[in-house]
Simulated scan of single mutants.
Amino acid sequence: MAETMIHPTALVEDGAQLGAGVSVGPFCHIQSGAVIGDGSQLMSHVVVTGATRLGANAQVFPHAVLGCEPQNGKHTGGPTTLEIGTNCTIREGVTMHSGSDTSRGRTIVGDHCTFLAYAHVAHDCVVEDYVTFANNVMVGGHCEIGHRAILGGGSAVHQFTRIGHHAFVGGLAAVAGDVIPFGMVIGVHAHLGGLNIIGMKRSGMDRKEIHAVRHASRMLFDRTKPVQDRAKDVKLAYAESKAVADLIDFVTTDSKRAFCTPLIKSAKDTREDNGGEQ
């Protein structure tokens, strides 16, 4: 069994639980109640507060702060948690807050996630597996980030927003609406600029399913009917597609936010799309 290593300058409080093979570097502070999974490496100046559970084989870089109280005025100070899965990479200056006692009470991060420098996960968020946050990504409270989503550098996500699985958020985008699964959004405020085809291919998604989602998304947002009405038509048209079913489940689920939709094209843009024909 691998030996646990604690640097002499680190402070590990009584009541903290460290698994086998954990490495705690210089000037780290692990508070009572925190749980650090087997094989995790905390490099230096890392703070892990009580009621934070960090899964096995995490790499946590200098000055990351995990599990502090939520930045939520409704929080009354009750016990809440931050739960981080296995095999996560958490780079310099990343912050993740615990849940709030007037909401979910838990902030949840899945397995195999990557958080680049100075990214932030706010209170009561749910981040699923294989998600990537680039540098300086800011995600507000109560957000839900689906598996294999990628958030580009400097992007900001409004509280209560949902980012569907396999979605891509462009760098510096301000996202104030829900992003459909497989969607790619860009701009301030972000609009739906297509689908994350590259991410879909990288995940091993079947070519037939990719084509189905491409056609279904065009049908869904064609503006001849409200999205909810078009969702029924899309569901019937692509009844055999699991990926399209995910898309329809997402848009028909109650949400506190509107959807990110494509920009309305001008007549000039439409003519150009049609090869100059009117």
Results as ranks from 00 to 15, higher is better:
S98P: 00
S98D: 12
S98G: 15
G99A: 08
S100K: 01
S100T: 11
S100N: 08
D101P: 03
T102E: 13
T102W: 04
T102C: 12
S103R: 07
R104L: 14
R106D: 09
I108H: 06
I108Q: 03
V109D: 06
G110N: 08
G110L: 00
C113I: 12
T114C: 05
T114D: 08
F115E: 03
A117C: 11
A117G: 08
A117Y: 01
Y118E: 08
A119G: 09
A122G: 12
H123Q: 10
E128C: 15
Y130A: 07
V131I: 13
T132E: 07
F133K: 00
A134L: 07
N135W: 00
N136Q: 11
V137I: 05
V137E: 00
M138E: 10
V139W: 01
V139L: 02
V139A: 05
G140L: 06
H142D: 13
C143S: 14
I145D: 05
G146R: 12
H147N: 15
R148S: 15
R148A: 15
R148P: 01
A149V: 12
I150W: 05
L151C: 03
G152F: 05
G153E: 06
S155L: 02
S155K: 01
A156G: 15
V157Y: 01
F160V: 06
T161P: 04
T161R: 01
T161W: 07
R162M: 09
H166E: 14
H166L: 15
F168L: 13
V169L: 12
G171N: 05
G171I: 07
L172E: 09
A174T: 07
V175A: 04
G177T: 02
D178N: 15
V179Y: 04
I180D: 01
M184Y: 12
V185S: 04
V185G: 00
I186C: 01
G187K: 14
G187C: 14
G187S: 14
V188W: 02
H189K: 10
A190I: 04
A190R: 02
H191M: 10
L192M: 08
L192K: 02
L192I: 12
L192N: 03
G194K: 11
N196C: 11
N196Q: 11
I198V: 13
I198M: 12
G199K: 11
M200C: 10
M200Y: 05
S203R: 06
G204I: 07
G204V: 06
M205S: 04
M205N: 01
K208E: 13
K208M: 09
I210N: 05
H211R: 13
H211I: 10
H211P: 02
A212N: 09
A212S: 09
H215Q: 15
H215G: 14
H215V: 12
